[in-house]
């Protein structure tokens, strides 16, 4: 937000409120992703169940933010930085909502997983998920601090996430090949890995929005891409 406050105080309040709702919603998403990951690594079903239950909260934030944005556009006709605040809030909220959904899906699958998963597989999963958790935290901080440089860093780091995802996929595929009995768990784990990567993608989308919000410019060029996805594990 700009330094000087609006002459119309209620307008100022509405924009601040929108801003704080994005931050709260982001906090819930961070929490959901953290719990979803812990549910797998620490085999904690309570965590998984609470992620599933709490997704409703995140959905409600999306609806609330959408209504606030529509009201601002209809009643305040925001311009310049206010316009960018308003439009990016709408887009960020929809990415955050998807992050919530993906965390919920991870948790649903976690509840179906076997108690004892191979350590190297869990380790690979932890590597990619901690990376994504770190990016999500950074971008929410960047939104709060209006930092285009942090947003740019997050955007560029998606490449690393893609690489870690592929390594994790390889572990899952190895696990699948070991024994036919691993088919159920392995399939769930493929989706879990893919969902974590998708959360990384949505985080990158948020980074693009934060960059636009702060600078008024679009991040140019193709998003950095990591190695090509592994299909067979035997390339």
């Amino acid at each position: 937000m700009s330094e000087a406050p609006h002459t119309v105080k209620s307008y100022e309040e509405e924009l601040k409120n929108l801003n704080s709702n994005i931050i709260k919603m982001g906090g819930f998403c961070e929490e959901a992703l953290g719990k979803a990951v812990q549910a797998i690594t620490m085999r904690n079903s309570d965590h998984a169940e609470s992620v599933i239950k709490d997704d409703e909260k995140i959905d409600k934030f999306e609806t609330l933010i959408e209504q606030q944005v529509v009201n601002l556009i209809a009643l305040r006709q925001p311009m310049a930085i206010d316009l960018r605040e308003t439009v990016t809030a709408l887009k960020i909220s929809s990415d955050l909502e998807r992050i919530g959904d993906l965390a919920k899906n991870i948790s649903k699958r976690t509840l179906l997983l076997n108690e004892n998963l191979p350590k190297n597989l869990v380790d690979a999963l932890v590597r990619v998920s901690s990376d994504v958790q770190k990016q999500l935290k950074s971008i929410l901080d960047a939104y709060l601090d209006r930092s285009s440089s942090v947003a740019m860093n997050v955007w560029e780091s998606d490449e690393k996430t893609d690489d870690l995802t592929n390594l994790c996929m390889q572990e899952v595929i190895k696990y699948l090949k070991e024994n036919e009995k691993n088919l159920d768990d392995g399939t769930h784990l493929l989706f879990v890995t893919k969902n974590i990567e998708r959360i990384g993608d949505h985080t990158t989308n948020v980074a693009e929005q934060v960059y636009y919000l702060v600078t008024g410019k679009y991040l140019e060029g193709d998003r950095p891409k990591g190695t090509e996805p592994i299909v067979t594990g035997e390339k």
């Binding site: 700009s2 000087a4 925001p78 311009m79 310049a80």
Partner: peptide, 14 residues
């Protein structure tokens, strides 16, 4: 959408 000058921005955003 994105004025260069802060005075312009302050004026058009009220």
């Amino acid at each position: 959408k994105n004025p260069d000058n802060i005075k312009t921005q302050d004026y058009i955003t009220g």
